[in-house]
Design a protein around this nucleic acid. Sequence first.
DNA 1: CAGCCTCATAGAAGCATCCTATGGACCCGT
DNA 2: ACGGGTCCATAGGATGCTTCTATGAGGCTG
Lengths: 308, 308
Amino acid sequence: MRLNNWPDLEALALLVTVSELGGVGRAARQLGISQPSASSRLRTLERRLGVPVLQRLPIGSRLTAEGQMVVDWAREVLGAADALVTGVTAMRRERGAALPVAASMTVAEYLVPGWLIALRSTEPDVTVGLQVANSARVAELVLAGDVEVGFVEGPSLPVGLASRLVGRDRLVVVVSPRHPWARRRTPLRPRELAATPLIVRESGSGTRITFETVMARYGPLAEPLLELGSNSAVKVALASGAGPAVLSELAVGDELAEGRLVAVAPEGVDLQRKLRAVWIEGRRLDGPARSLLTLATRGAAARRPPGS
Amino acid sequence: MRLNNWPDLEALALLVTVSELGGVGRAARQLGISQPSASSRLRTLERRLGVPVLQRLPIGSRLTAEGQMVVDWAREVLGAADALVTGVTAMRRERGAALPVAASMTVAEYLVPGWLIALRSTEPDVTVGLQVANSARVAELVLAGDVEVGFVEGPSLPVGLASRLVGRDRLVVVVSPRHPWARRRTPLRPRELAATPLIVRESGSGTRITFETVMARYGPLAEPLLELGSNSAVKVALASGAGPAVLSELAVGDELAEGRLVAVAPEGVDLQRKLRAVWIEGRRLDGPARSLLTLATRGAAARRPPGS
DNA sequence: CAGCCTCATAGAAGCATCCTATGGACCCGT
DNA sequence: ACGGGTCCATAGGATGCTTCTATGAGGCTG
């Protein structure tokens, strides 16, 4: 991870806006900066990228072919950055927010930002307060009335809570494409998996607990090969070719689709877990809480069951 | 897409490095800046995020719980930014590169950056030149010897080219979760799909051609609802709830996994297409070209066929 | 030909970062 | 207990980028 030479997100956002509006000046106006400022920034961006991205014409500006690619890549970057900002903003407003919410780590990390971004378009003024905790603690917070809605993972459902499915997640055993398991033809037996030292999340994490619970019946688990505190740390370890890891499918969807990681399904083991929204039983959710729940449910309800 | 309030990628990279090395000073040293500079930057980042992310201790610095989330989100952002920079760098070196490559747009956009990032770790000094063109033109470039390796999509395979499968892609019909089709219970008949105005990529794009070829036998296609020049532009249109679109699965993997978009499979239509590396028949690839091919093949070979 | 649009350039002001030098807190050895 | 190692924070001056307003150059249109 080198330090400099990173693109300037503001310049990229400006470029994306230019591509949408078809003009430097128009984009500047929309973003609330002066036209010369926009012009200069784009020129700097172009110089730093080393590729002309804009075709300046007397009637406006169009993207070059390279510019089109840059804009597409930039939208990915900005989307991820938006998720970060949105997530952090929600965590900052932990207290005194109009809509206090609690979520388990996987849900908070991979799903909540997307929901909040969507929520923003229908309810721009609602401030959401996000608290991240394990599923048991989330349930407590909901029951205590500290938050209106909670999002939990796993099979346990405390009494007194109403719930709705907001998604399905599946733990996957993944290896780097370099790893021998990536090419194995024989199915992975649960006992073999149990006996293999794995890269896992720290003990206490929902991912770890789910995995250990499911695997319990196949004999004692081997000592972890490595124990890391976040999904992305596990991915970093995997990237350098280290042994199999267990992660949430949500965390590795991209890597699997692009072939940067390979999933190895243990035979006959169901590692799926349900992600649920929970709230106090009998309480009728309304206003923003209802909108959020609708948003969260929406994706899940229509998504097809296992296997796309 | 507002302009300011975007996080500073350099500061995020610094934070990630701190999380890996466990200390502000250590991270500063690794990144080649002074320790006070790092300290001040992190403080600024913290102030702008509004959340304490670091616990400063006399023996180093650890992340707070919020910091852990920020680092994970930041890794996503930086990964996307790295893909952008890598892709642009490759396009810039179009001529005079040690390893000239051509790729169709989907491959260039979604797969090539990942391969190049991986290639960097084994062959740090190789400069790759990337040319983006449609599959037919890629084949020409390979045959003319302008590039060593090409990456094409679709069924056509010109004579004189050797090829190897580097991945499978599938076109998917997607709608926003708000769209009626997201909840439909009846299967989508090919004829209904053909008769529905869709959001599609511009004519001439590989995605569009593949779709039209496959659908040809189900009757004339309706006029497009909207015709856009890039995958992300289509996604932007979808996000605002507009009608069904046809996109590459590679382009929407994340959105499907997180439920932000919903796939509707047309009954009995095979929209899969193969992504192939091609080079001049009989020519033996060696050096960096060989490494790249290995990398590209690696993910595909081990990936399971349709349906995860 | 005037007026409107486009984007580019010039010059001055402001802000954030950078560096070096130093200070305060802690741990650990002697 | 005391030096020497670690750690991070602060101070002060230099630098560079971005910002603004004002103006210019080019093209379309009534």
